[in-house]
């Protein structure tokens, strides 16, 4: 019953996003499509985090690491393709590429590996320690990218042409949106499937009562590590798409603000619900666009809204509409 209601809500929100874009295409407003693409990519990053945060109760303030690694996977590969220089010639020749599928694969694998390594270290702790340490690892990557001159250092990298996907013209806003939307739909489906699977139930159990899980002979560390790795991989994919949307990567993708924003997408919408991050990211982009036009200081309003949600409307926007999530039947 709960799953049905959540799934229905997910379908409605996704349909709303899609029809907004189709309407914008029909009326010739490509900028709206770009905003919707931005929201879809942020939502994808949020769904990634929600796997760790909502399902697993791991409050990671370091997901910018995976977002940034995905971004730089695109930046590094495409910049080598752009200048026709190989990435490395030893031990084997590796060339740059501007084929999106290859870039996505590299982004997903490298961010998953980073999540595995960071998770193996940080998941030895919990609670506040975990929050502080994930934040610190994010900062480490930020300073590393700022200080590493090979790929633009502080200035970042510009990629002049959007990377290609066989059979599509990725420079056409609606075709690029279609790619991002397809990934978002897949991630949403993945989240719902994982949530209902034995693995998802075990992960939720680790969040709700670790001692009992141990008592039945399951090691919560390994369950959490798998979830954290999956979470990093999804957020890394979002990073690669975000880099392609902007055709630019910079260390700002690794900054603590980025980590905070990804958490905000999840919380604004509603933590631990499949559609939460999509609603949250949509609202964030809407606020950024409408309030950003009115005042340069729109983040004060964002701060006030966030504060109000935390203090008075726990469960986020989705929680206001749907009520608190029911326990799994």
């Amino acid at each position: 019953m709960s799953l049905n209601r959540e799934t229905t809500a997910s379908l409605i929100v996704m349909a709303a996003l899609l029809s907004t874009v189709l309407w914008a295409e029909a009326t010739g407003e490509p900028f709206t499509i770009t905003l919707a693409t931005r929201a879809a990519i942020f939502a994808l990053a949020g769904i990634g985090l929600n796997l760790a945060l909502g399902m697993g109760g791991m409050v990671s303030l370091g997901h910018a690491v995976f977002f940034g690694i995905g971004g730089y996977a695109m930046g590094i590969l495409a910049s080598h393709a752009q200048t026709f220089t190989p990435l490395t010639t030893w031990p084997i020749l590796i060339e740059g590429t501007n084929a999106m599928p290859v870039i996505w694969l590299v982004a997903v694998i490298s961010s998953a590996l980073a999540a595995l390594a960071i998770g193996a270290l940080t998941l030895r702790t919990s609670g506040v320690y975990f929050i502080m340490i994930t934040l610190a690892f994010g900062q480490m990557f930020y300073y590393f990218m700022t200080g590493w001159p090979a790929y633009g250092g502080e200035d970042g990298l510009s990629i002049y042409v959007r990377n290609g996907f066989p059979g599509l013209n990725t420079l056409d806003p609606i075709q690029f949106f279609a790619i991002c939307f397809a990934f978002l739909a897949c991630a949403l489906w993945l989240y719902i499937r994982v949530d209902a699977s034995p693995f998802g139930l075990t992960l939720s159990a680790a969040r709700q009562n670790e001692a009992r899980l141990r008592a039945v002979g399951i090691d919560p560390f390994r369950i959490r590590l798998v979830a954290f790795t999956l979470s990093g991989a999804v957020t890394g994919l979002a990073g690669a798409l975000f880099a392609d949307l902007n055709r630019f990567v910079s260390p700002a993708m690794f900054s603590w603000q980025t980590s905070g924003e990804i958490v905000i997408f999840v919380i604004l919408g509603g933590v631990g619900r499949p559609i939460g991050p999509v609603v949250g990211a949509g609202l964030y982009v809407l606020l950024e666009h409408t309030l950003g036009d009115v005042s340069d200081y729109w983040q004060i309003v964002l701060g006030a809204i966030l504060l109000a949600i935390v203090l008075f409307a726990r469960g986020g926007l989705t929680g206001l509409v749907l009520g608190r999530p029911l326990p799994h039947g």
């Binding site: 609670g127 929050i131 004060i300 701060g303 006030a304 504060l307």
Partner: peptide, 14 residues
Amino acid sequence: HLDQVLATFALILI
């Protein structure tokens, strides 16, 4: 801790 992180993050923005 999640609520604490968010509320104090909101304070940073403000």
